[in-house]
Computed example of a mutant assay.
Amino acid sequence: MMKPQFFHRLPEMEKGYSMSLAVRAGDYVFIGGLTATDNKGNELHADNPGAQMKRIYEILDEVLKEFGGTSRDVVSEVIYYDVSGNEYTEKLFPHRQAFYGEEGPSVVGMQVVGFISPAIHVETTAVAFLPQRTLP
Results as ranks from 00 to 15, higher is better:
residue 50 G to N: 00
residue 87 E to Q: 14
residue 71 S to Q: 13
residue 101 G to T: 14
residue 113 V to T: 13
residue 25 A to S: 00
residue 12 E to K: 00
residue 58 E to V: 10
residue 125 T to N: 12
residue 93 F to A: 15
residue 70 T to R: 14
residue 43 E to V: 02
residue 116 I to A: 15
residue 132 Q to G: 12
residue 66 E to F: 10
residue 55 R to G: 00
residue 81 Y to S: 06
residue 86 N to V: 13
residue 68 G to V: 10
residue 67 F to L: 10
residue 80 Y to P: 01
residue 26 G to E: 06
residue 3 K to D: 14
residue 75 V to Y: 04
residue 93 F to R: 15
residue 105 P to W: 07
residue 106 S to V: 10
residue 100 Y to W: 14
residue 135 L to T: 11
residue 48 N to Y: 01
residue 39 N to Y: 10
residue 60 L to R: 02
residue 70 T to D: 11
residue 71 S to G: 09
residue 90 E to D: 15
residue 4 P to H: 07
residue 70 T to E: 09
residue 22 A to D: 03
residue 117 S to I: 08
residue 127 V to F: 03
residue 49 P to Y: 09
residue 29 V to R: 05
residue 134 T to A: 09
residue 127 V to D: 00
residue 34 L to Q: 03
residue 39 N to H: 10
residue 42 N to I: 01
residue 125 T to R: 05
residue 83 V to S: 09
residue 102 E to D: 13
residue 36 A to W: 08
residue 136 P to V: 01
residue 102 E to N: 14
residue 8 H to L: 14
residue 124 T to G: 01
residue 42 N to G: 05
residue 43 E to S: 07
residue 130 L to D: 01
residue 107 V to S: 13
residue 128 A to W: 04
residue 117 S to L: 11
residue 82 D to A: 13
residue 135 L to P: 08
residue 83 V to D: 05
residue 113 V to S: 14
residue 66 E to T: 10
residue 31 I to E: 07
residue 46 A to I: 01
residue 22 A to P: 05
residue 68 G to M: 11
residue 35 T to L: 05
residue 88 Y to G: 02
residue 97 Q to C: 09
residue 121 H to W: 02
residue 49 P to T: 06
residue 14 E to R: 07
residue 4 P to W: 00
residue 3 K to S: 12
residue 21 L to A: 02
residue 16 G to D: 10
residue 24 R to K: 15
residue 17 Y to M: 05
residue 107 V to A: 13
residue 119 A to I: 11
residue 17 Y to K: 01
residue 60 L to H: 02
residue 58 E to W: 00
residue 64 L to G: 08
residue 25 A to H: 04
residue 38 D to K: 09
residue 96 R to Y: 13
residue 21 L to K: 02
residue 122 V to H: 06
residue 5 Q to N: 09
residue 111 Q to T: 11
residue 26 G to F: 01
residue 120 I to A: 04
residue 116 I to K: 13
residue 19 M to C: 15
residue 7 F to M: 03
residue 125 T to M: 02
residue 9 R to D: 05
residue 79 I to F: 12
residue 59 I to D: 09
residue 6 F to Y: 15
residue 63 V to A: 04
residue 105 P to S: 05
residue 18 S to Q: 13
residue 86 N to Y: 12
residue 92 L to G: 08
residue 51 A to I: 04
residue 106 S to D: 13
residue 111 Q to C: 12
residue 112 V to G: 10
residue 69 G to E: 06
residue 5 Q to Y: 03
residue 25 A to G: 04
residue 9 R to L: 09
residue 33 G to C: 02
residue 38 D to E: 08
residue 48 N to L: 00
residue 72 R to K: 15
residue 44 L to N: 00
residue 98 A to R: 15
residue 28 Y to H: 07
residue 61 D to Q: 06
residue 120 I to H: 03
residue 87 E to F: 06
